[in-house]
Design a protein around this nucleic acid. Structure first.
Lengths: 238, 238
DNA sequence: GAGACCGCTTAGAGGCATTAAACGTAGATA
DNA sequence: TATCTACGTTTAATGCCTCTAAGCGGTCTC
């Protein structure tokens, strides 16, 4: 059957793609970002360098695809944590997802480094890429939980009247982008939380706090407690 | 005079070093991180590639030296802002320094990118480098102001009793490192502020918030207002 | 004035990204 | 079934990069 045989080719191709990703990841983890070269990846899977150009148009696209994979894995870990708490109160699900995010980041620092500071700079980064899609899925997880919280219990929101016009416009615009499931005021709270949570992780993984902290787990938990306070949720330690 | 002639050589060397830094910076700003190669820098200043090895032992050291220069420039901008407000209340000096920090970061995104996420990863980064020295000077500025604030007016501090043992130890250790000018409780507050301030800037410059904000100036001001609240300071807009 | 030294050059090895061209084989097709 | 085709691959080649080695002329020191 032609479908079957075509399927076979396709399967082989997928297998090779997975080999490529695994090799790239191995190089990244073991030898750092700079070691992930087209040639090195090819060597790792036992083919000549140019062979990889049948799978990716070049180094940047390869890196982008691998990074997208990391993003998906991170999002998957967070979703799994969320689903493991399926019946639990929203507070616990939110905390579980945040902790899963950090756990993955700490467990995979090199990969997380690529996620938010990949060697490919913005101009070379297309907005329609798989990488971008994966980023959206990642952001969606905490957004969804926040929306659920908003719908069921709401949470305290600031008065936007005191904010500059431009900021209010941006918050309203984002509220529209997400279909109005959160009003601009709630978007503001969501973003505040996002910034503090993600910002802390960035600093940790980029070693910006090494000068004082060797273990940031308690700091992260403090951050979570603060955020729980902002969202009027019960904070409970693991 | 021998001092004079030796001085001449030294002067020429310094001039060349400055040319190297300027060329590297130009390449970074105009063509991105990857464009800063030893060869390209050499080409830019009109010498052959290997000539640069008389100034730096290799690509990494060159990047480190250039980054240290950026650090010094950033610290200088912050110090200048501080000194411009020499007579003003501490609150205004603190705010001015923070705003100067962001202003420099926004005005020099590529350079700031190297400051906190340089292409040279930690293993290749020696702790005794000029880069590290410059980082210390940078951190010292806000630390000094915080110390002054603590000495003159103090600020609310949390009870450390509720924190995990390991965290208290780390805070105490850092308190010792800085000669006890801040007690562990105050160190905690200082670090909370530092994390929120610097974390926000990192996210901004790494384009992690592009999906919603095109202008983060109001967000930064909100952050400053929060921090002023933490430190029991009057917040005043520019 | 002679020797040491400095800053530079060219030459060269080895690696990487990428393109082009050639080749064999597995699937598709008549 | 025999042939065509397209795919996955290889080798060759270009041009860039890092870095080392060797050589050369001017400059500083004594």
């Amino acid at each position: 059957m032609s479908a079957r045989t075509t399927g076979r080719r396709e399967r082989l191709r997928q297998a090779t793609l997975e080999e490529i990703h695994a090799a790239a990841r191995k190089l990244l983890v073991e030898q750092g970002s700079a070691a992930v070269t087209v040639n090195a990846v090819a060597r790792e899977i036992g083919v000549s360098g140019p062979a990889l150009y049948h799978y990716y148009s070049g180094h940047d696209e390869l890196v982008g695809a691998v990074t997208a994979g990391f993003f998906r894995e991170l999002a998957g870990a967070m979703e799994q944590a969320r689903d493991a708490q399926a019946g639990a109160p929203i507070a616990e699900r939110l905390l579980a997802v945040c902790r899963a995010m950090r756990a993955w980041a700490i467990g995979h620092p090199a990969e997380f480094g690529w996620i938010f500071a990949s060697p490919i700079t913005p101009p070379n980064l297309r907005r329609d890429s798989a990488r971008h899609q994966a980023a959206l899925r990642f952001e969606q997880i905490l957004l969804d939980l926040t929306v659920e919280l908003w719908r069921t219990r709401q949470f305290p929101v600031p008065d936007l009247a005191g904010l500059p016009e431009s900021q209010r416009e941006q918050l309203t615009a984002f509220s529209d982008v997400i279909g109005g499931v959160l009003p601009p005021e709630a978007v503001h709270v969501f973003l505040s939380c996002w910034i503090r949570l993600y910002g802390l992780l960035c600093m940790e993984v980029l070693h910006q706090l090494d000068f004082v902290y060797t273990d940031l787990e308690p700091v992260f938990e403090e951050c979570l407690r603060d955020l729980a306070g902002l969202l009027d949720l019960d904070y409970s330690r693991t």
